[in-house]
Protein backbone atom coordinates (compact mmCIF):
# COMPACT_ATOMS: atom_id res chain seq x y z
CA UNK A 1 0.00 0.00 0.00
CA UNK A 2 2.81 2.37 0.99
CA UNK A 3 4.69 1.40 -2.18
CA UNK A 4 1.60 2.11 -4.25
CA UNK A 5 1.25 5.56 -2.66
CA UNK A 6 4.94 6.31 -3.30
CA UNK A 7 4.61 5.09 -6.89
CA UNK A 8 1.52 7.25 -7.42
CA UNK A 9 3.27 10.23 -5.86
CA UNK A 10 6.27 9.81 -8.19
CA UNK A 11 3.94 9.50 -11.17
CA UNK A 12 2.08 12.70 -10.18
CA UNK A 13 5.34 14.61 -9.75
CA UNK A 14 6.57 13.31 -13.09
CA UNK A 15 3.30 14.26 -14.75
CA UNK A 16 3.37 17.84 -13.42
CA UNK A 17 7.06 18.12 -14.26
CA UNK A 18 6.42 17.06 -17.82
CA UNK A 19 3.44 19.40 -18.09
CA UNK A 20 5.47 22.38 -16.86
CA UNK A 21 8.16 21.52 -19.41
CA UNK A 22 5.53 21.20 -22.08
CA UNK A 23 4.09 24.59 -21.15
CA UNK A 24 7.55 26.15 -21.20
CA UNK A 25 8.22 24.66 -24.60
CA UNK A 26 4.90 25.92 -25.94
CA UNK A 27 5.73 29.43 -24.79
CA UNK A 28 9.03 29.47 -26.63
CA UNK A 29 7.54 28.03 -29.77
CA UNK A 30 5.48 31.00 -30.93
CA UNK A 31 5.57 30.85 -34.68
CA UNK A 32 6.56 34.03 -36.63
CA UNK A 33 3.00 34.65 -37.84
CA UNK A 34 1.79 34.76 -34.23
CA UNK A 35 4.64 37.09 -33.31
CA UNK A 36 3.49 39.45 -36.04
CA UNK A 37 -0.01 39.44 -34.59
CA UNK A 38 0.93 40.38 -31.05
CA UNK A 39 -1.09 43.26 -29.66
CA UNK A 40 0.22 46.58 -28.43
CA UNK A 41 -0.10 45.16 -24.88
CA UNK A 42 1.66 41.83 -25.41
CA UNK A 43 4.33 42.69 -27.99
CA UNK A 44 7.94 43.17 -26.83
CA UNK A 45 9.41 46.67 -26.53
CA UNK A 46 11.01 46.43 -29.97
CA UNK A 47 10.24 44.51 -33.17
CA UNK A 48 11.62 41.00 -33.63
CA UNK A 49 14.63 40.59 -35.92
CA UNK A 50 13.75 40.88 -39.60
CA UNK A 51 10.20 42.15 -38.99
CA UNK A 52 9.14 45.23 -40.92
CA UNK A 53 6.19 47.37 -39.88
CA UNK A 54 4.84 50.08 -42.20
CA UNK A 55 1.92 52.37 -41.74
CA UNK A 56 0.22 55.72 -41.85
CA UNK A 57 -0.53 58.00 -38.92
CA UNK A 58 -3.00 60.82 -39.47
CA UNK A 59 -3.66 63.60 -36.99
CA UNK A 60 -6.12 66.49 -36.94
CA UNK A 61 -6.67 69.43 -34.65
CA UNK A 62 -8.21 72.87 -34.65
CA UNK A 63 -7.01 76.01 -32.91
CA UNK A 64 -9.91 77.50 -30.98
CA UNK A 65 -8.71 77.88 -27.39
CA UNK A 66 -5.45 78.36 -25.59
CA UNK A 67 -3.94 78.22 -22.12
CA UNK A 68 -2.64 81.62 -21.07
CA UNK A 69 0.50 82.27 -19.03
CA UNK A 70 -1.45 81.73 -15.80
CA UNK A 71 -2.85 78.41 -16.94
CA UNK A 72 -6.39 79.66 -17.69
CA UNK A 73 -8.17 78.12 -20.67
CA UNK A 74 -9.46 80.91 -22.96
CA UNK A 75 -10.99 81.26 -26.39
CA UNK A 76 -9.04 83.28 -28.92
CA UNK A 77 -10.96 86.54 -28.65
CA UNK A 78 -10.42 87.79 -32.19
CA UNK A 79 -12.08 86.38 -35.27
CA UNK A 80 -9.42 83.85 -36.04
CA UNK A 81 -9.08 80.10 -36.03
CA UNK A 82 -6.84 77.50 -37.60
CA UNK A 83 -6.85 73.83 -38.45
CA UNK A 84 -4.07 71.42 -39.15
CA UNK A 85 -3.81 67.86 -40.34
CA UNK A 86 -0.72 65.77 -40.78
CA UNK A 87 -0.06 62.44 -42.41
CA UNK A 88 2.99 60.48 -41.36
CA UNK A 89 4.36 57.61 -43.40
CA UNK A 90 6.12 55.42 -40.88
CA UNK A 91 8.41 52.43 -41.21
CA UNK A 92 9.99 50.30 -38.48
CA UNK A 93 12.51 47.51 -38.90
CA UNK A 94 13.83 44.99 -36.35
CA UNK A 95 17.58 44.85 -36.93
CA UNK A 96 17.94 42.34 -34.10
CA UNK A 97 15.46 41.14 -31.48
CA UNK A 98 16.57 44.11 -29.37
CA UNK A 99 17.47 46.81 -31.89
CA UNK A 100 14.87 48.65 -33.97
CA UNK A 101 15.07 51.41 -36.56
CA UNK A 102 12.17 53.87 -37.14
CA UNK A 103 11.59 56.36 -39.92
CA UNK A 104 8.84 59.00 -39.90
CA UNK A 105 8.07 61.01 -43.02
CA UNK A 106 5.44 63.69 -42.34
CA UNK A 107 3.22 65.61 -44.73
CA UNK A 108 1.56 68.66 -43.23
CA UNK A 109 -1.45 70.70 -44.27
CA UNK A 110 -2.34 73.83 -42.33
CA UNK A 111 -4.83 76.61 -42.78
CA UNK A 112 -5.17 79.80 -40.79
CA UNK A 113 -8.18 82.08 -41.10
CA UNK A 114 -8.55 85.65 -39.94
CA UNK A 115 -11.03 88.39 -40.68
CA UNK A 116 -11.58 92.00 -39.64
CA UNK A 117 -13.88 94.86 -40.45
CA UNK A 118 -12.27 98.30 -40.53
CA UNK A 119 -14.57 101.30 -40.22
CA UNK A 120 -13.03 104.71 -40.77
CA UNK A 121 -15.82 107.31 -40.49
CA UNK A 122 -13.45 110.21 -41.22
CA UNK A 123 -12.56 108.67 -44.55
CA UNK A 124 -16.10 107.44 -45.14
CA UNK A 125 -14.64 103.97 -45.66
CA UNK A 126 -15.58 100.45 -44.58
CA UNK A 127 -13.12 97.68 -45.34
CA UNK A 128 -14.04 94.04 -44.86
CA UNK A 129 -10.88 91.96 -44.97
CA UNK A 130 -10.27 88.26 -44.55
CA UNK A 131 -7.19 86.13 -44.93
CA UNK A 132 -6.85 82.48 -45.56
CA UNK A 133 -3.26 81.38 -45.21
CA UNK A 134 -2.40 77.83 -46.18
CA UNK A 135 0.69 75.72 -46.12
CA UNK A 136 1.17 72.17 -47.19
CA UNK A 137 4.09 69.93 -48.01
CA UNK A 138 6.79 67.80 -46.50
CA UNK A 139 7.49 68.58 -42.86
CA UNK A 140 10.51 67.64 -40.74
CA UNK A 141 11.41 63.95 -41.00
CA UNK A 142 12.63 61.90 -38.04
CA UNK A 143 14.69 58.75 -37.52
CA UNK A 144 15.06 56.72 -34.33
CA UNK A 145 17.17 53.85 -33.08
CA UNK A 146 15.66 51.89 -30.21
CA UNK A 147 17.53 49.31 -28.18
CA UNK A 148 16.27 47.06 -25.39
CA UNK A 149 18.90 47.61 -22.72
CA UNK A 150 17.16 45.07 -20.47
CA UNK A 151 14.71 42.54 -21.78
CA UNK A 152 11.62 41.93 -19.74
CA UNK A 153 11.51 38.87 -17.50
CA UNK A 154 9.07 37.61 -14.87
CA UNK A 155 10.28 40.10 -12.26
CA UNK A 156 11.74 43.09 -14.02
CA UNK A 157 10.40 45.35 -16.74
CA UNK A 158 12.14 45.91 -20.03
CA UNK A 159 14.24 49.05 -20.21
CA UNK A 160 14.58 50.56 -23.66
CA UNK A 161 16.82 53.40 -24.74
CA UNK A 162 16.02 55.44 -27.83
CA UNK A 163 17.95 58.06 -29.71
CA UNK A 164 16.33 60.10 -32.46
CA UNK A 165 17.13 62.87 -34.85
CA UNK A 166 14.74 65.24 -36.61
CA UNK A 167 15.99 66.91 -39.78
CA UNK A 168 14.65 70.25 -41.04
CA UNK A 169 13.31 68.87 -44.32
CA UNK A 170 10.15 70.98 -44.17
CA UNK A 171 9.89 74.47 -45.69
CA UNK A 172 11.10 76.79 -42.94
CA UNK A 173 10.10 80.17 -44.35
CA UNK A 174 6.87 81.72 -45.62
CA UNK A 175 6.84 81.53 -49.42
CA UNK A 176 4.94 83.13 -52.31
CA UNK A 177 4.78 86.33 -50.29
CA UNK A 178 2.42 88.75 -52.02
CA UNK A 179 1.88 90.96 -49.00
CA UNK A 180 1.94 90.77 -45.20
CA UNK A 181 -1.26 88.74 -45.19
CA UNK A 182 -1.00 86.70 -48.36
CA UNK A 183 1.65 83.99 -48.37
CA UNK A 184 2.16 80.28 -47.92
CA UNK A 185 2.75 79.06 -44.39
CA UNK A 186 5.95 77.17 -43.59
CA UNK A 187 5.69 73.42 -42.96
CA UNK A 188 8.90 72.91 -41.00
CA UNK A 189 10.63 74.28 -37.93
CA UNK A 190 13.90 75.21 -39.64
CA UNK A 191 16.14 73.49 -37.13
CA UNK A 192 17.46 70.02 -36.47
CA UNK A 193 16.91 68.39 -33.11
CA UNK A 194 17.92 65.24 -31.35
CA UNK A 195 16.09 63.37 -28.65
CA UNK A 196 16.81 60.71 -26.07
CA UNK A 197 14.20 58.49 -24.46
CA UNK A 198 14.26 55.93 -21.70
CA UNK A 199 11.26 53.64 -21.50
CA UNK A 200 10.37 51.07 -18.86
CA UNK A 201 7.66 48.57 -19.70
CA UNK A 202 6.12 45.67 -17.84
CA UNK A 203 3.50 43.25 -19.10
CA UNK A 204 1.13 41.79 -16.51
CA UNK A 205 -1.42 40.16 -18.76
CA UNK A 206 -3.97 41.53 -19.66
CA UNK A 207 -2.28 44.80 -18.62
CA UNK A 208 0.94 46.48 -19.55
CA UNK A 209 2.48 49.51 -17.85
CA UNK A 210 4.85 52.08 -19.33
CA UNK A 211 6.88 54.91 -17.90
CA UNK A 212 9.11 57.10 -19.98
CA UNK A 213 11.25 60.20 -19.88
CA UNK A 214 12.23 62.02 -23.03
CA UNK A 215 14.61 64.89 -23.66
CA UNK A 216 14.80 66.88 -26.91
CA UNK A 217 17.68 69.17 -27.69
CA UNK A 218 17.22 71.67 -30.52
CA UNK A 219 20.27 72.65 -32.52
CA UNK A 220 19.10 76.01 -33.82
CA UNK A 221 18.98 77.53 -37.28
CA UNK A 222 17.90 80.61 -39.18
CA UNK A 223 14.52 81.56 -40.62
CA UNK A 224 12.10 84.38 -41.43
CA UNK A 225 9.81 84.79 -38.44
CA UNK A 226 7.29 87.01 -40.25
CA UNK A 227 6.30 87.41 -43.85
CA UNK A 228 7.49 91.02 -43.78
CA UNK A 229 10.97 90.24 -42.40
CA UNK A 230 13.68 91.04 -44.90
CA UNK A 231 16.34 88.73 -43.55
CA UNK A 232 16.49 85.49 -41.61
CA UNK A 233 17.21 85.62 -37.89
CA UNK A 234 19.17 83.01 -36.02
CA UNK A 235 17.19 81.11 -33.41
CA UNK A 236 17.34 78.09 -31.17
CA UNK A 237 14.24 76.53 -29.61
CA UNK A 238 14.31 75.71 -25.93
CA UNK A 239 15.02 72.13 -24.95
CA UNK A 240 11.96 70.02 -24.23
CA UNK A 241 11.47 67.43 -21.55
CA UNK A 242 8.59 64.95 -21.53
CA UNK A 243 7.67 62.30 -19.05
CA UNK A 244 4.65 60.16 -18.63
CA UNK A 245 3.16 56.79 -18.05
CA UNK A 246 0.44 54.64 -19.44
CA UNK A 247 -1.77 51.80 -18.33
CA UNK A 248 -2.80 49.59 -21.22
CA UNK A 249 -5.43 46.88 -21.04
CA UNK A 250 -6.59 44.21 -23.43
CA UNK A 251 -10.37 44.38 -23.54
CA UNK A 252 -10.41 41.12 -25.47
CA UNK A 253 -7.84 39.20 -27.49
CA UNK A 254 -7.58 41.83 -30.18
CA UNK A 255 -8.66 45.20 -28.75
CA UNK A 256 -6.47 47.23 -26.43
CA UNK A 257 -7.41 50.37 -24.55
CA UNK A 258 -4.48 52.52 -23.52
CA UNK A 259 -4.43 55.49 -21.16
CA UNK A 260 -1.48 57.81 -21.07
CA UNK A 261 -0.86 60.75 -18.80
CA UNK A 262 2.06 62.94 -19.81
CA UNK A 263 3.79 66.19 -18.99
CA UNK A 264 5.95 68.39 -21.19
CA UNK A 265 7.98 71.51 -20.58
CA UNK A 266 10.02 73.71 -22.91
CA UNK A 267 13.07 75.71 -21.99
CA UNK A 268 13.58 79.29 -23.11
CA UNK A 269 13.84 80.03 -26.84
CA UNK A 270 16.72 82.07 -28.19
CA UNK A 271 16.16 84.53 -31.05
CA UNK A 272 19.00 86.50 -32.62
CA UNK A 273 21.21 85.29 -29.75
CA UNK A 274 18.86 86.81 -27.16
CA UNK A 275 17.21 84.44 -24.66
CA UNK A 276 13.47 85.14 -24.51
CA UNK A 277 13.28 85.54 -20.74
CA UNK A 278 10.02 87.51 -20.76
CA UNK A 279 8.02 84.83 -22.53
CA UNK A 280 6.59 82.01 -20.43
CA UNK A 281 7.75 78.73 -21.96
CA UNK A 282 4.96 76.28 -22.80
CA UNK A 283 4.38 73.41 -20.40
CA UNK A 284 1.47 71.20 -19.47
CA UNK A 285 -0.24 67.94 -18.68
CA UNK A 286 -2.29 65.98 -21.14
CA UNK A 287 -4.23 62.75 -21.32
CA UNK A 288 -4.32 60.46 -24.32
CA UNK A 289 -6.78 57.61 -24.68
CA UNK A 290 -6.32 55.08 -27.49
CA UNK A 291 -8.26 52.14 -28.82
CA UNK A 292 -6.02 49.83 -30.80
CA UNK A 293 -7.44 46.97 -32.86
CA UNK A 294 -5.13 44.10 -33.82
CA UNK A 295 -6.66 42.30 -36.79
CA UNK A 296 -4.16 39.61 -37.84
CA UNK A 297 -1.07 41.59 -38.89
CA UNK A 298 -3.02 44.83 -39.26
CA UNK A 299 -3.12 47.33 -36.44
CA UNK A 300 -5.75 50.06 -36.52
CA UNK A 301 -5.77 52.65 -33.79
CA UNK A 302 -7.69 55.74 -32.82
CA UNK A 303 -6.51 58.22 -30.20
CA UNK A 304 -7.63 61.50 -28.65
CA UNK A 305 -5.12 63.68 -26.84
CA UNK A 306 -6.75 66.16 -24.47
CA UNK A 307 -4.72 68.96 -22.86
CA UNK A 308 -5.63 69.02 -19.18
CA UNK A 309 -3.69 71.86 -17.61
CA UNK A 310 -1.01 73.89 -19.31
CA UNK A 311 0.62 77.27 -19.75
CA UNK A 312 1.08 79.27 -22.94
CA UNK A 313 0.00 76.58 -25.37
CA UNK A 314 -3.03 75.33 -27.30
CA UNK A 315 -5.99 73.87 -25.42
CA UNK A 316 -7.75 71.88 -28.12
CA UNK A 317 -7.93 68.09 -28.47
CA UNK A 318 -5.88 66.24 -31.08
CA UNK A 319 -7.35 63.34 -33.05
CA UNK A 320 -5.04 60.58 -34.29
CA UNK A 321 -5.73 57.60 -36.58
CA UNK A 322 -3.17 54.84 -37.10
CA UNK A 323 -3.04 52.04 -39.67
CA UNK A 324 -0.06 49.66 -39.59
CA UNK A 325 0.90 46.29 -41.03
CA UNK A 326 3.71 43.96 -39.99
CA UNK A 327 5.45 42.14 -42.87
Amino acid sequence: MTKQIKYSFILIILYFGLEINALGQTESQIIPTEKKQLTIVTEPASLYKGFFRAGVIGSYFVVDKYFDEDGNRNYFPESTWARSWSMYLMAQYGITDRLQFDLMLPYQNEAWYYSQLIIAPGLDTDLDQSWNLRGNGLSDMSMYLRYQLLQENETFPSITGEIGITLPTGRKNPTDIKDDYDYKLPTGTGEASTNFRLLARKIMYPYSFKFYVDYTYSMGGTKLFNSYDTEELSFKSGSRIDFGGSVDILLNEWIAFTNELSYFSYGKDEIDEVIQEDITSPSGFSYEGRLVFQIKQFRIGEAIRVPLKAKNTGADPLYVMIIQYVF
Partner: peptide
Protein backbone atom coordinates in the same frame (compact mmCIF):
# COMPACT_ATOMS: atom_id res chain seq x y z
CA UNK B 1 -18.81 76.24 -27.56
CA UNK B 2 -17.45 79.70 -28.23
CA UNK B 3 -18.89 81.92 -30.96
CA UNK B 4 -16.71 84.76 -32.20
CA UNK B 5 -17.83 87.70 -34.28
CA UNK B 6 -15.67 89.50 -36.79
CA UNK B 7 -13.20 91.80 -35.10
CA UNK B 8 -14.07 95.47 -35.66
CA UNK B 9 -11.61 98.34 -35.96
CA UNK B 10 -12.86 101.93 -35.75
CA UNK B 11 -10.21 104.29 -36.99
CA UNK B 12 -10.01 108.07 -36.82
CA UNK B 13 -7.19 110.57 -36.62
CA UNK B 14 -6.92 110.46 -32.84
CA UNK B 15 -7.98 107.01 -31.84
CA UNK B 16 -8.15 103.34 -32.87
CA UNK B 17 -10.84 101.25 -31.23
CA UNK B 18 -10.75 97.46 -31.51
CA UNK B 19 -13.87 95.49 -30.61
CA UNK B 20 -13.84 91.74 -30.17
Amino acid sequence: QGIRNTTLYYLDIYETVTIT
